[in-house]
């Protein structure tokens, strides 16, 4: 057997980063537990979806923000090994700090130019209490920040949708409004499967042909049904 020229081969890395609001208001009406359940429920679907494309290696991480921000799962974890640990809610909403920390991880290095566009999923129920604009500016100053697929999920009615729209960065997609636990499950499953699948397909295109954050085709998001009772609404 002829020895193949070159060094080690590897699928292209795809970084999937969950950015979760853990402020005190997330403890109201069981929102934080619904978020934990939704992420946990999505994991097997995410793993199955990832198996469909052997040319992308999905790495998952999670960052939480409340009074400050910190990595909840710091190490880029291969999706097949990904496990979820429950988040707890307390404190304020330092979303800008979380975006700055994500921006640091999207610099090159540690990122490489052979990566696929990262997927960033921002989930929040409120309004930033720190300088969101500064955090977003730092994120968008990174090449991979601009190229990232940025998805935002509003948890409940009190979320600042304008902030989430700025995070998305274009008008061709709106924040996903999750007003109950079932909707949250559906959206997180969708982003963990359909969006992930789309982001993992290497399809080159001209720079001129896309807007920031839309360099992969975003599948149609699920339509969430009306909840069973008023008690189910956040």
């Amino acid at each position: 057997m002829a020895v193949r020229p070159g060094g080690e081969l590897a699928a292209r890395p795809l970084h999937f980063i969950l950015i979760a609001d853990c402020s005190g208001s997330m403890s109201d009406n069981g929102k934080i537990q619904a978020l934990n359940n939704a992420i946990r429920e999505a994991i097997p679907h995410m793993q199955t979806s990832s198996d469909d494309n052997p040319n992308a290696q999905v790495f998952v991480r999670a960052i939480k923000f409340s009074s400050g921000a910190s990595w909840h799962i710091e190490k880029p974890t291969p999706v097949e090994d990904f496990k979820w640990f429950d988040l707890q809610a307390s404190g304020v909403t330092d979303m800008g700090k979380a975006l700055k920390m994500v921006a640091d991880e999207l610099k090159m290095p540690p990122m490489t130019d052979r990566a696929l566009p990262p997927v960033l999923v921002l989930m929040s129920d409120g309004q930033p209490t720190d300088s969101f604009e500064d955090g977003l500016a730092e994120l968008m100053a990174q090449g991979w920040g601009k190229k990232a697929v940025r998805i935002a999920i509003a948890i409940g009615d009190d979320c600042d949708l304008d902030v989430l729209q700025k995070f998305i960065g274009h008008n061709e997609m709106k924040p996903l409004q999750a007003n109950n636990a079932e909707a949250l499950v559906n959206y997180i499953r969708w982003v963990s499967t359909a969006v992930l699948k789309s982001a993992s397909s290497p399809a080159s295109q001209s720079q001129e042909n896309q807007v920031s954050g839309l360099n992969i085709p975003i599948p149609v998001a699920p339509v969430n049904n009306v909840p069973n009772s008023a008690d189910d609404v956040w």
């Binding site: 130019d113 990566a115 696929l116 566009p117 090449g143 991979w144 190229k147 290497p202 399809a203 080159s204 295109q205 001209s206 720079q207 001129e208 042909n209 896309q210 360099n215 992969i216």
Partner: peptide, 17 residues
């Protein structure tokens, strides 16, 4: 040298203005 702008499957191209 590699063009630093070309990441994330985006490329300059014959089809751009």
């Amino acid at each position: 040298p590699r063009d630093e702008r070309l990441i994330g499957n985006e490329t300059t191209s014959l089809c751009t203005k």
